[in-house]
Deep mutational scan, measured.
Amino acid sequence: MPSETPQAEVGPTGCPHRSGPHSAKGSLEKGSPEDKEAKEPLWIRPDAPSRCTWQLGRPASESPHHHTAPAKSPKILPDILKKIGDTPMVRINKIGKKFGLKCELLAKCEFFNAGGSVKDRISLRMIEDAERDGTLKPGDTIIEPTSGNTGIGLALAAAVRGYRCIIVMPEKMSSEKVDVLRALGAEIVRTPTNARFDSPESHVGVAWRLKNEIPNSHILDQYRNASNPLAHYDTTADEILQQCDGKLDMLVASVGTGGTITGIARKLKEKCPGCRIIGVDPEGSILAEPEELNQTEQTTYEVEGIGYDFIPTVLDRTVVDKWFKSNDEEAFTFARMLIAQEGLLCGGSAGSTVAVAVKAAQELQEGQRCVVILPDSVRNYMTKFLSDRWMLQKGFLKEEDLTEKKPWWWHLRVQELGLSAPLTVLPTITCGHTIEILREKGFDQAPVVDEAGVILGMVTLGNMLSSLLAGKVQPSDQVGKVIYKQFKQIRLTDTLGRLSHILEMDHFALVV
């Protein structure tokens, strides 16, 4: 994948999101292997301009796509893939009243899908469409860049269908997702969380590099694949309309690839034109409109599966009536509230959605109805927002919020430890010299600072030695090549209790 991002070429006709291997024109390309080798690009942008032909009021008969309808489940399912879809609609009884809503608040519980998330729908649909058009064949390999849930859905379907599955996901995604993927037989590649989507090191860039190296491999490409919004247009939206008897006044959905909100909203605009569509985008993402909503100094966020630093091709923002931004604290607070007060075992993005819903639905009156999409299960986040310690460490809970008995030293300040200034190293000294210094002084790690004293990161003896043994660096290389740029900081005025929580999850903390 090139470091400079080429513009994806656009073909003359058809839909841009065809499933299957992508040609340089962004659509299915038939021909000899030699032709494909000559024409197939190194990668295709996940934010390529959409060429979708959908228009409100256009006859369904003019759609270029294969459409399906929700099917009634048999008493005995032939395999677990038949437990994807037909998820329950559940009334939220307490939270709406707590925040003064007059309307009825309903939750579409997508964590009841077989793999635990709304992404099971698009995973199965992308595979079925690729099999139907002859792209996927027995023994082929599926590769997908994902925040985890699409990966789980694909790995689940691949396990049943017999495909090899490789999932490329950023490091910030939970260990629970990784464990589930491994249990399903998927191979996992992790990428830096802070890598831009168009960087060769991003999950998108690495996935395309693997595709170019592995024979008979395919990126189904949830960011561009029409099967993504079509899955929701054909099934999720129809289920909502049936469950609500066609009567709903507002739908609120958090947005990642945009397939969920695009597919549902398009069908609702056709069948229930008075329904307002509300999009939820986390602070630090750029999906919301108008652009002024996205202006923030924050560039990272903890909530998973929603928000991006690019506009995915499948996201149709014209069908969203209003956007709201959400933050991590309210997302996790509301997710825990949904679990504790409503018994809905949902993930953090569901918290984002409901946090926005109780604001947006203030305009609705008694007798009206708001539906929220709860995308995934708490299963993926047992060591994250479900953990009091994690919430404390991230600053989303305060010590006084917890009532468990603490040891005698818990409320003492870090400054009472009488710490001395640490050994520091410059980023320009060599790895070999740094190892000598650390061994001589008896230290395992040291902060790396520039000549102005600005902290650049941390270097550890173990990481340097393993990097040297693996051949990633040489003793003569500058130590700046092996620094940890993500590390926890703590102030002298913070409590030892807070430091204790940090050290339970990290090997060190830097006192500043």
Rank of each mutant, 00 (worst) to 15 (best):
P2T: 12
S3L: 12
T5D: 02
A8E: 10
E9C: 14
E9P: 14
V10W: 09
S19E: 10
H22V: 13
H22K: 01
A24L: 14
L28Y: 11
P33D: 10
E34L: 01
D35H: 13
K36Q: 15
K39I: 03
K39Q: 12
L42T: 11
W43H: 09
R45T: 04
C52E: 02
C52R: 02
Q55C: 13
S61C: 15
P64C: 04
H66M: 10
H66Y: 15
A71P: 13
K72T: 04
S73F: 14
P74F: 07
K75P: 08
L77C: 08
D79L: 06
K83Y: 10
I92R: 07
K94Q: 13
F99E: 09
L105I: 14
A107L: 02
K108N: 02
E110F: 01
N113Y: 01
A114D: 09
V118C: 07
K119T: 04
I122L: 05
I122V: 04
S123T: 06
I127D: 05
I127S: 06
L136I: 09
D140P: 03
T141N: 10
I142Y: 00
P145R: 00
G148R: 00
N149M: 00
T150R: 04
I167H: 07
E176P: 00
K177W: 00
L181R: 01
L184H: 02
L184M: 11
E187H: 08
I188A: 05
R190Q: 06
T191K: 01
T191E: 01
T191G: 01
P192I: 06
N194W: 10
N194C: 08
A195R: 05
F197L: 09
F197Y: 03
V204C: 06
R209G: 09
L210R: 01
K211T: 11
I214K: 02
P215Y: 08
P215T: 06
P215D: 15
L220I: 01
D221Y: 14
Y223W: 01
S227W: 02
Y233E: 00
D234C: 01
T235W: 11
T235Q: 11
T235M: 09
D238W: 09
L241T: 07
L241A: 13
K247I: 13
D249H: 06
L251I: 15
T257K: 01
G259K: 04
K267L: 15
L268Y: 03
K269D: 02
K269Y: 03
E270I: 02
K271I: 12
